[in-house]
């Protein structure tokens, strides 16, 4: 039995109208959105760590300024997404608690370590590249605040991928050693970047409902295929070897065929056993705790100001 509210909600969804914060929505739609948007926000924030690892060791002032700007953007993107999520009735502190307790997830790509400077280039190019494929699709998500956040983020994100590719290009056209470093970074980040799109559609717990409600607009496998296709040419221009020996153009499908992923690794990292899972969360907890005096100072300053104003008014 569908209620008039549910009917009205589904009418908006099928008419491609956005759902806005004060509209009635099914509980499961709200929960699903909170899970996805908060996971997305956490990824932006945790994603600052692997790149931050190279800030003090960037090879030039120019690269350092660029990297700093990119990391600053990620913090901003986290903020847009947390704010969008808060319109669904969850508080910022609840979300942070869920991240720190492990109840909420973030993209498992950030549990891989950044071993060399080339990894920073590979992340911008491949990881942000994969994120863009996903986010371009999410600009058409059915929830208004999420959609608007995605539009803003996509506008800012193009620079992230281009700076990464430019850094990779510099290494790939550099000395033998630099080229080998670029190849190694590509080999290590290519597969986890493909895993960012999530499990196969048939294995994805949330996919079907999310597609029905138009929270997600394209399936994990379709988005992954887009990324595989666009990356072939980019690897070729770098003059590097494709990490997937089975990559082959399929005329009939109009897409590249590729190897299946190591799903054992995927599930193992998601379930907490990647190289850096513990370190990432511990670092977040420490940064949050160490920042407490700043939050306290803001509150103390506000109280002082209020008292002063009250005195003036009296």
């Amino acid at each position: 039995m569908t209620t008039p509210q549910e009917e009205n909600f589904m009418r908006k969804i099928s008419a491609e109208e956005k759902i806005e914060p004060k509209d009635w929505m099914p509980d499961a739609y709200r929960k699903n959105l909170i899970r996805q948007i908060s996971q997305h926000a956490h990824s932006e924030v945790i994603g600052m760590q692997p790149e931050g690892n190279w800030l003090t060791r960037a090879p030039s002032l120019r690269r350092k300024a660029i990297l700093l700007s990119k990391i600053q953007d990620e913090a901003g993107h986290g903020l847009y997404l947390y704010s969008a999520c808060e319109t669904l009735g969850i508080s910022r502190s609840e979300m942070i608690e869920q991240l720190q307790s492990g109840a909420a997830k973030y993209s498992s790509i950030f549990n891989y370590p950044t071993l060399t400077w080339a990894d920073v280039g590979a992340i911008g190019w491949l990881v942000d590249g994969a994120a863009i494929v996903n986010q371009v699709s999410l600009q058409r998500t059915s929830y208004g605040p999420y959609s608007r956040g995605m539009i803003r983020i996509c506008k800012e994100e193009s620079f992230h991928q281009r700076q990464g590719y430019e850094a990779m290009l510099a290494l790939a056209k550099g000395s033998e050693g630099q080229k080998a470093m670029a190849q190694d970074a590509l080999n290590r980040f290519y597969w986890p970047a493909l895993m960012m799109f999530g499990p196969h559609d048939s294995e994805s717990a949330h996919s079907q409902k999310s597609m029905e409600w138009k929270i997600k607009r394209e399936t994990n496998d379709d988005l992954r295929q887009k990324f595989v296709d666009q990356t072939v040419k980019q690897i070729e221009v770098l003059g590097l070897e494709h990490p997937d020996k089975n990559i082959k153009w399929n005329e009939e499908r109009g897409h590249y065929d590729s190897s299946d992923l190591n799903w054992d690794e995927f599930w193992s990292v998601i379930n907490g056993n990647g190289h850096c899972n513990r370190q990432r969360v511990e670092h977040h907890v420490a940064a949050h705790d160490e920042g407490e005096w700043v939050r306290d100072a803001i509150t103390a300053y506000n109280e002082k100001k209020r008292a002063k104003n009250a005195q003036h008014a009296a």
């Binding site: 300024a65 700007s69 193009s158 620079f159 281009r162 700076q163 590719y165 430019e166 290009l169 040419k233």
Partner: peptide, 14 residues
């Protein structure tokens, strides 16, 4: 200026 995508000059095919 490096905050803008157009700042980065990349080869035409990509």
């Amino acid at each position: 200026p490096y905050r803008h995508a157009t700042y980065y000059v990349l080869p035409d095919p990509v």
